[in-house]
């Protein structure tokens, strides 16, 4: 147990150091920024789908609201950016509480209602007065453009979400969530507060993408409704997390790094094929590799669970 903890920690430290050096190395900053962004999204999504078993098909809304809160606070009210990004996180929390009643829905009902809610938010945001949210053209933050600062902020968030995932998988909450997933009624009879445990995970899974949205808005310095509430962002989050393996910590990280790399490669060369590849990958994953790469490895060799998690 102890040695494996040390290995995990040293891997995290080395990866962090490398990512911290990217801006001074001859490497593409946006590439690694988005790689971290997707690691964060996939890891946070894993909390609600991997641990709790709820599929929020409108997951993009937390990110989208995060981008807008930061953009609006900075451009309209002059709130300093780091503070605006914190407000994005708070907005994510508020949103997750507002949607807490949907947690009593199950399976496909939860997925669809969440998806429809994201669409509602998108339409509402796009139709807010232009003086508030910039309408369908969105908001520019070019006056605040600081790629280096936002890069390091994303690095911090990425490390934080991976650490939160590690903590969760060993914590009481994590065990409770696994019990609930296995047998909800039995968990309740054992004194586990089912709805509260789910709510905690839901809030955690919401606050991270909202913060990521705020940071990403700062990095790209532009926010618009089509990008902020794009269904494809949910799709990519699901695919990246599933490809690596839901319910594991390394899975979403591996999935995001590999699939984002592939996505970026194809996107640069054959933009039309991108959608096709994403679609085929989803079908393949669901039907042939539902546990993902890491999950399948662990299933094949259970001893691996001690080394990779």
């Amino acid at each position: 147990m102890k040695t494996y903890r040390k290995t995990t920690l040293s891997v995290i430290v080395i990866a962090t150091l490398f990512l911290a050096m990217v801006p001074v190395l001859p490497l593409s900053k946006p590439y690694f920024f988005y790689m971290m962004f997707w690691i964060t999204m996939a890891s946070a999504f894993n909390i609600i789908y991997g641990f709790v078993g709820y599929l929020p098909f409108g997951y993009v809304m937390f990110y989208g609201v995060g981008t807008y809160v930061t953009a609006v606070l900075w451009s309209r009210l002059g709130v300093p950016l780091p503070l605006a990004i914190l407000c994005s996180g708070a907005a994510g929390l508020v949103l997750s509480l507002a949607f807490a009643p949907t947690l009593r829905l199950k399976g496909i009902y939860f997925a669809i209602v969440n998806f429809a809610s994201a669409m509602v938010l998108r339409i509402v945001v796009a139709n807010l007065p232009e003086a508030w949210a910039g309408g369908s053209f969105g908001i520019s933050l070019s006056g605040a453009y600081k790629p280096l600062a936002s890069y390091y902020l994303m690095l911090a968030l990425t490390v934080a979400s991976v650490v939160v995932g590690l903590w969760l998988s060993h914590s009481r909450l994590g065990i409770a969530l696994r019990c609930i997933r296995d047998d909800e009624a039995a968990a309740a009879v054992m004194g586990i507060n089912v709805s509260m445990s789910r709510l905690k995970a839901w809030m955690l899974a919401a606050v991270i993408p909202s913060l990521a949205g705020g940071i990403e808005a700062w990095f790209t310095a532009i926010v618009d409704p089509d990008t902020s509430f794009n269904l494809m962002s949910t799709a990519k989050t699901i695919v990246y997390a599933m490809f690596g393996g839901l319910g594991t910590i390394t899975g979403p990280i591996f999935g995001a790094v590999f699939m984002y790399g592939l996505d970026d490669f194809i996107w640069g060369r054959f933009p039309l094929l991108n959608l096709l590849v994403l679609g085929v990958t989803i079908i393949f994953l669901i039907l042939f590799l539902p546990r993902g790469v890491v999950g399948s490895l662990i299933q094949r060799w259970p001893g691996l669970r001690k080394i990779i998690e």
Partner: peptide
């Protein structure tokens, strides 16, 4: 809980 370690199974009521 079938997919959960036996130890964690026992811990469920004291979480």
């Amino acid at each position: 809980f079938k997919k959960i370690p036996v130890v964690d199974n026992i811990l469920a009521p004291v979480l």
